[in-house]
Design a protein around this nucleic acid. Structure first.
Lengths: 254, 254
DNA sequence: TGTACATCAGTGAACGCGCGTTCACTGATGTAC
DNA sequence: TGTACATCAGTGAACGCGCGTTCACTGATGTAC
């Protein structure tokens, strides 16, 4: 480990080749991200990336075996970036669950607004002809896991509002009750999922509430970024804030 | 008006040319929709459409002056189709508002599931390089109008649950209250919008609730169609049903 | 009813462009002795 | 420390493909007299 050219984790020396390789890999992805903005995922072109980097197109094949592999790398990076933002905001220890929830929602929205094309890449229409490989699944689940984890933590600490806290009228029409116990089919899916996640202490209706809130959150962000609010609720800040409060209530954090 | 070749609305005679033209216009859009499925909006190609119809590509320019105009026609058709489905379900007279709400939500989801590529075209990531013209705005607002109209009708008939019906705990933390009065910024946007729509009788928080519910609805459908539920809540029927009930409550129809 | 003219749908060739991927190669960097 | 060999990043040409759009044209359909 001779200072300058020591490898980060291992003690192996990093050769100039290795350094050049990581650097160029980074530059390729950076340029590709820039091109997502102009042309979208379908329009991402190895030739254009190479051209912009001053290389010949065939040289890129030393770094990514195909266009789809480059796309996969971008997708994983994007999921990791938004996932990390959500985790960082959600896992602030000490703060009440409700505040952590709001912080996570805002962190996700902020990331989406500052990276709209990467957001579209992962939460927009599927890229035709592209099948996401297994390696994207882990990164993709970081955001929902962070949100569900929040609810699980609240359940563990007794912060979670049960259905009995929902007031008299919420106890009304049985299965239609939006905050009451979930139906059998849904409960089965929920318990299976929470078992898979190792979160057995979270009650099914809270998990379901968190998942529904998760979809709402991204519905809101997608409408904002994809232009459905043009001419009505734009800017969408106030609408978003209110939705976040409602979501917290749905997830039992209200 | 000599029976067979009388024009539909006007009394003008329809020539063979006119009939051929409407027929081919229909066939072009039909084939283009088929290609959306394979290649997505970016991949929609005039040449491929022409090839499939047994025409030469330049012939299509008699029908659409450019690729983007064909895309616009598809977008308008899609908005109209989902809008009509929503209206038909929402405007059933007599039924209670809550049921009409659920019917509209299910009608929209059903349309989306049976036309996933058209759904992606209008609610997915924006097509790079394509600017939606003004003519799409009217069709695009049919769905939100149908939903807001439902809430407005409920308000007019006294069916709408006010904030006071939300139970003791909902009256809690002032501005954070998810069902209480909306803040000033949001109220201003809401009243401006309802004035523009000519729906002055609907209170701002009900309008805001309807809009938030609208975003949630499409968040749910997008996640279902775009694959975010793969491996967890799939099929999403039970989750969707529950979300719809919660949405009705948020919109004041619960 | 028949004829002369106008309209317009569809053809075929062309322009100029971009794409992903393969392959044999040169020459620089790294490694084992 | 120096040399022989192996590794591998990047080149340049090529393959075969598809695209949107323009343009001069042919020939069928429609219309006015």
């Amino acid at each position: 480990m001779t200072s300058a050219n020591a490898a980060q984790g291992t003690g192996r020396a990093r050769t100039a080749r290795e350094r050049a390789r990581t650097e160029l890999t980074r530059e390729i992805k950076e340029e590709a991200r820039r091109q997502l903005a102009d042309a979208g995922a379908n329009g991402l072109s190895l030739r254009a990336v190479a051209r912009e980097l001053g290389m010949v197109s065939s040289a890129l094949y030393r770094y990514y075996p195909s266009r789809d592999d480059l796309l996969t790398a971008l997708i994983i990076d994007a999921y990791d970036a938004v996932g990390e933002a959500a985790e960082r905001a959600a896992l602030t220890p000490g703060a009440p669950a409700r505040d952590r929830w709001a912080a996570a929602c805002h962190a996700i929205r902020d990331w989406a607004r500052s990276h709209p094309h990467e957001y579209a890449l992962i939460y927009g229409s599927p890229v035709p002809g592209y099948r996401a490989p297994q390696s994207t699944v882990g990164p993709a689940s970081r955001v929902p896991l962070a949100l569900v984890g929040l609810v699980a933590a609240a359940a563990a600490s007794g912060e979670l509002a049960g259905p009995e806290a929902a007031g008299p009228e919420a106890a009304g029409p049985g299965a239609l009750d939006p905050r009451g116990p979930v139906g059998a089919a849904l409960a089965a899916q929920a318990t299976e999922l929470s078992a898979a996640l190792g979160l057995t202490e979270v009650p099914p209706q809270a998990l379901v509430g968190a998942v529904i809130a998760w979809t709402q959150l991204f519905g809101m962000i997608s409408f904002e970024l994809f232009g459905q609010f043009v001419g009505s609720f734009e800017p969408a800040d106030a609408l978003f804030d209110r939705a976040v409060c409602q979501l917290a209530a749905l997830a039992g954090l209200g």
